[in-house]
């Protein structure tokens, strides 16, 4: 009893003293859960090749990562943040305000959003408009049985073939990620909003009433046709195999690993594949970035080495090991530009 009290107080004392000189010997990375699988592979390879401490990668989401990253310049802040979209100007300003003025932007590659169903189910070929009419909470009335133009109605569609006669006659049931997920943002901004823009009235609304436009063009239906799953994509895949008519929405790397269970739908006549995402034919894909705090270079041991490993051709190039994990590399000239920026610590200006 007495002994444990002594130990406890020693630990408490240790806590307070350790805070003073907590020098860090590992690289600290935070940010997007979409970049996480790629970032971790690079970290592991770096650690094993050099024998240095393996960088620690936290999956905080893009926004959460930016908040931590932009908090300041001390070594108790992360060195790198991963992002599944470009840094927002508001985030950039926050960084500037907190003294994080010198950061470098690196484009890692691209990630496609797959609409997939079980391998034995019907095949789909959507246009973005189909996706919008299938998933939006409210749709223009003219899209449904000669409704009055200009009105917005609650989404009445129950089967895909009601939207487009070429689609299979199955019930609309889409299993997808929750609002906290970056995949969900991409689904809303690239797919649903992408289809929404096909209506001139909506396009006009974008300039006149932007918040209303966002609400109508990105709102996902909540009447049961869109089933919100957790962040766990493996769970979506196992549900899809049990219900061949249901569609699931997840990142391309999961489709790539589970090609024996699920198949991806084509969008705008372009089947989802490595090549179609890379050359931009497949429309629902997003860029993946990481941002480096240049003030930490030379302070945190190995930071330059880790970045060099990340932008190596054998890592994020056409034949790099990240492609085995489902990363879609960016075109060569863009890639080499970002690699130079990364190695030369070129300062980002928005």
């Amino acid at each position: 009893m007495k002994k444990s009290l002594i130990i406890a107080s020693t630990i408490a004392a240790l806590t307070i003293t350790s805070s003073a000189q907590a020098a860090r010997d590992h690289i600290d990375v935070v940010g997007s859960s979409t970049v996480f699988p790629f970032s971790t592979v690079v970290a592991e390879t770096y650690g094993k090749n050099t024998g240095k401490p393996t960088p620690k990668i936290e999956s905080t989401g893009t926004g959460g990562g930016m908040k931590l990253f932009c908090k300041g310049e001390g070594i108790d802040t992360p060195d790198i943040t991963n992002a599944s979209r470009r840094i927002k100007s508001s985030e950039f300003e926050l960084c500037m305000k907190n003294g994080v003025t010198d950061i470098t932007e690196v484009l890692v590659g691209f990630d496609g959003i797959a609409f997939a169903n079980a391998i034995n189910g019907p095949s789909f070929n959507f246009s973005l408009k189909d996706v919008y009419l299938g998933l939006a909470a409210k749709i223009p009335a003219e899209a449904y049985q000669n409704g009055t133009e200009g009105d917005m109605i609650d989404n009445p569609f129950t089967h895909w073939n009601q939207i487009n006669a070429n689609l299979p006659a199955v019930k609309i049931k889409v299993l997808g990620p929750p609002p906290t997920s970056g995949t969900r943002d991409a689904l809303q901004e690239l797919a649903v909003e992408g289809g929404c823009k096909n209506y001139p009235a909506m396009k006009a609304m974008k300039s006149s009433d932007k918040s209303q436009y966002k609400k109508l063009c990105r709102g996902i239906r909540e009447d049961g046709a869109y089933v919100q799953m957790g962040e766990n994509d493996n769970l979506i895949i196992s549900k899809l195999t049990k219900d061949p008519n249901a569609l699931g929405v997840f990142g391309f790397s999961f489709l790539d690993q589970n090609g024996d269970k699920v198949k991806g739908s084509a969008i705008n006549n372009s089947a989802i594949s490595f090549e179609s995402i890379a050359n931009g034919d497949y429309p629902v894909s997003r860029p993946l970035y990481f941002y480096v705090k240049n003030a930490h270079r030379g302070v945190i041991d190995g930071l330059d080495g880790f970045i060099a490993e990340f932008v190596d051709e054998d890592t994020f190039g056409e034949e790099g090991y990240l492609t085995d994990k489902g990363l879609i590399p960016s075109p060569e000239n863009i890639r080499s530009g970002f690699a130079e920026d990364a190695l030369g610590a070129v300062k980002l200006a928005l």
Binding site: V30, S39, A43, T54, K56, I57, S59
Partner: peptide, 9 residues
């Protein structure tokens, strides 16, 4: 507190 992370070491 950052313990949901990839830690290889």
């Amino acid at each position: 507190i950052g313990m949901v992370a990839f830690v290889a070491d």
